[in-house]
Design a protein around this nucleic acid. Sequence first.
DNA 1: GCGACAG
DNA 2: ATCTTGTCGC
Length: 232
Amino acid sequence: MDFPALHAWDLSPREAVALQRRLAAQVVVADRLPARINRVAGVDVSYEKHGRIFFAAVSVLSFPDLEPLAEATARGHSEFPYIPGLLSFRELPLVLQAFQRLAQAPEVILVDGQGIAHPRRLGLASHLGLWLGVPTVGCAKSRLCGEHVAPGTEKGAATPLRDGEDVIGTVLTTRTGTKPLYVSPGHLVDQRRAVEITLACCRRFRQPEPTRRAHHLSNQLRRSTPTPPEDR
DNA sequence: GCGACAG
DNA sequence: ATCTTGTCGC
């Protein structure tokens, strides 16, 4: 697929925060999904144990059947450290490389991380959606910010994730008896659609099929990659 | 200053 | 995210 090329991204954490504030204003939290959704993609990144090499994977499934259609991966590294709230500056470059290798763009993308449920409303899912110009949904396994009461334990149970006056996400039980997921709009989708798509992608596991497959893909890529020699 | 803190 | 064996439960 085609989208703006990735320039050199050597920003300091402080500059990254400033950029997030500017980009957040461009995020569209509204239902702009096409009438017919045929392809859903999931993204995930795994790291080598010493954090030397990153492995990004994208898995595309048919919708609503969820049958595998295509996949793409990318190997690389990042100098940017993991800082809560600045995850996209660490992972996005490699994730974009993986998407660059996809022949066809999906109608929506599920991301292993937050969408607007972020201090500055620009989690990894929102940043990715903005860059690709494709609708995205954040499906994080844990909370970054916001408050909420626990949802019921039945699949489909949900409670709002709030940050002051704003509803920034939905704490959603995606499988009966398991810990809920933190679902939030990434870009071009609203709260309702974010939850709808996520539930439609959950079969027998807590994680939606797209991100679950991407997770396995990036893991097997890491396991099949020899660890390069140390430098000291 | 202290606690929280996606992956 | 990653380091890790067995183990409890559907």
